[in-house]
């Protein structure tokens, strides 16, 4: 029997929909895993913010390196796409380095980097999300957030994390390109049931082995009217190398009227 493409698409969608509904219903959840991940994806997307952070990088031998940054974010009008500017304050050899990231949910993000030694802003390739974010155990993809539609999600169970009931969601990449670009074959996230904030996560490398463990601590409700939450401490540990990172948000101001013009290469060059 031959089917037209349209018929196949309708059948595929109906089948996929039934599978999702059946899976959720079978496990007794009133919400689909996609809805949970969508809510999680936007739960920390505040209108705008300024923040000062300290990153502590520790190797297996316990040796520490410290980075301090100043950053701003702002949602682009009518979207949940962020603009992010990060300026490095310490240590001395990276002081003055600035990165600008403009997210595009339907396209590749734009990334520029200003290096004081070059005196120039340079546009960078953004498709690769697996590289380490400035030497930390968080990848660029972890920092920006993994686009929900690029992953297949399944609710595994519910579990208590530090006294908070969480959905345990398994996410697998929809294709090999996503796996290659993010460096992950699977992510497991613990999403708090009532707020949709992530409490912890585990990442698996492309070969399927446990790669990283992450924790999101000291969560604060920073925009109550929009149910926006922000973790004041992020922890990641590469279980394969023993290297770990703690990012502490020392100062955070939300909804302070950050102007669009701050997310420009002009400001990056303001040494």
């Amino acid at each position: 029997m031959k089917y037209s493409m349209k018929q196949i698409s309708i059948k595929t969608c109906l089948t996929a929909g039934l599978v999702i509904i059946f899976s959720s219903a079978q496990l007794g959840f009133a919400i689909t895993p996609e809805e949970i991940m969508e809510k999680n994806f936007i739960v920390n997307k505040v209108t705008d913010s300024t923040s000062q952070t300290t990153m502590i990088l520790t190797n297996k031998a316990g040796k520490e390196r410290v980075r301090k940054t100043f950053g701003t974010t702002k949602l682009q009008k009518g979207t949940f796409d962020n603009m992010r500017m990060t300026r490095f304050l310490e240590p001395t050899d990276v002081k003055g380095m600035v990165s600008l990231l403009i997210e595009h949910s339907k396209d590749e993000d734009d990334i520029w980097l200003y290096l004081p030694s070059l005196k120039k802003v340079r546009r960078l390739v953004s498709s690769n999300k697996k590289d380490s974010f400035v030497g930390t155990d968080f990848s660029y993809g972890d920092v920006i957030g993994h686009k929900v539609k690029e992953w297949n999600h399944t609710i595994l169970k519910e579990e208590d994390v530090d006294g908070f009931m969480c959905y345990v969601i398994e996410s697998t990449p929809i294709n090999k390109t996503i796996a290659k670009n993010t460096g992950y074959s699977k992510r497991v996230s613990w999403i708090q049931k009532d707020t949709f904030v992530a409490r912890k996560a585990m990442m698996y490398d492309e070969a399927g082995s446990l790669y990283k463990e992450m924790q999101f601590l000291n969560l604060e409700l920073v925009e109550p009217e929009k149910n926006k939450w922000y973790a004041r401490e992020f922890r990641a540990r590469n279980v394969q190398t023993g290297h770990s990172t703690v990012i502490k948000v020392d100062e955070l101001k939300v909804n302070v009227g950050v102007k669009d013009s701050y997310f420009t290469t002009r400001y990056m060059e303001s040494q």
């Binding site: 300024t50 410290v66 301090k68 701003t72 300026r87 310490e90 020392d250 302070v256 009227g257």
Partner: peptide, 18 residues
């Protein structure tokens, strides 16, 4: 007062470690 500084003048300049 209507716009935040992009440069953290009130940031504790060097942190505890430094």
């Amino acid at each position: 007062s209507d716009e935040p500084s992009l440069f953290p003048e009130d940031f504790p300049a060097d942190g505890e470690e430094i």
